[in-house]
Design a protein around this nucleic acid. Structure first.
Lengths: 199, 199
DNA sequence: GTCTATAATTTGATAGAC
DNA sequence: GTCTATCAAATTATAGAC
């Protein structure tokens, strides 16, 4: 059972960050929640708390990118794919009593001015999400520039939606996002050049 | 000069929160930056750090609401009014080397699970912004329900835009917001019922 | 209203036995 | 790999002189 100690530490830290942010989480809390001794934490993460944050951000980036890909893979219409993503995020919020679904935005805003390694990890995460959504929209016939703008809006409304939902303890803000932005995808699809794809 | 000590404390705290968030800011930092002694801080804010945060959130809510009202008062077209707001926010980001323009979103996400007074203050701030933007859109002929959705999207994209801009040290995300959401306002205006207003 | 001193606790991090 | 013990520094908050 020694092998998954690293993963236990990572999982516990992720949850604590989503509860209390970066500066609000102490290593003693992590040690207790994992559970793992302080010595073990420093064994797996010699860079201490900062390295732990980078690892949490990297793994969260991957998990959310995979969630996005799995949702679009199961959905025919791109406009409803994004709505489905917002629905699923809202469901997560309710099930967890409005714990933050994503640790990255909070951590980035807390320490963007003081920890460049963490800021860069968060930047890479957001970039990878924008890229994944852009590629998906381009695959559906939307031209590169418009696709990138819409993908950026998608990530921004996700993060901004989490801010309002967590604050208001309501998923209504995410519903407003879905209602207002869904027509943007539809209209971009409608105005694409009528080159037939192999689908 | 005793009279504005309270204001100096408030201003210094606001700036420190935007730099390092709530848990990343200590009262000793506030004391040094204000400047004011710890005793003075507790004299004006007997509730300590938590009361200080509520006061910062309340004052920030008012300042931003006034900024919004002043921008829309100087602009003819609602679609360009929102773009102007995003432009101005972007300008602020560049001028301050990407210090967070708004302390509320960060603080709310940090302590929404642990401090209900702070969470409620942040909720009131967001609500007041949504209400101001909704009223403005309704005054311009957009029906209540659609206006509220667009106003909510406006606040969400502002907060989410700050997250990405601060993380990427770039104002390009806010530009993407302006480009993608501006047509939504225009189309809502175009489809309003043709009742003539007194403008 | 402002100041200094300090209480009581917790923090991130390290050392070294096992 | 895991554990305990411990460091030096910083934290919020309070007390009481001026």
């Amino acid at each position: 059972m020694g092998i998954d100690t690293r993963q236990r530490i990572l999982t516990a830290t992720n949850e604590l960050f989503r509860h209390h942010g970066y500066n609000g989480t102490s290593l003693s809390q992590v040690s207790k929640a994992a559970p793992a001794t302080i010595g073990s934490i420093y064994h797996f993460f010699p860079g201490g708390k900062e390295a732990l944050a980078v690892a949490v951000i990297d793994s969260t980036a991957t998990v959310y990118r995979q969630l996005f890909e799995s949702i679009v893979a199961e959905t025919n219409d791109p406009a409803s794919a994004f709505s489905l993503f917002f629905d699923q995020a809202g469901q997560m919020l309710v099930e967890t009593d409005f714990i933050d679904p994503c640790p990255i935005g909070t951590i980035a805003r807390e320490v963007a001015s003081t920890s460049d390694p963490i800021r860069r990890a968060a930047e890479a995460a957001f970039d990878s999400w924008v890229e994944a959504a852009t590629d998906y929209l381009v695959r559906n016939g939307i031209r590169q520039g418009e696709a990138r703008d819409l993908a950026t809006l998608f990530v921004i409304t996700t993060e901004g939606g989490f801010v309002l939902c967590r604050t208001k303890r309501s998923i209504e803000p995410l519903h407003a996002v879905a209602r207002t932005t869904s027509p943007l995808i539809s209209s971009a699809l409608a105005s694409r050049s009528p080159t037939p794809s192999k689908a």
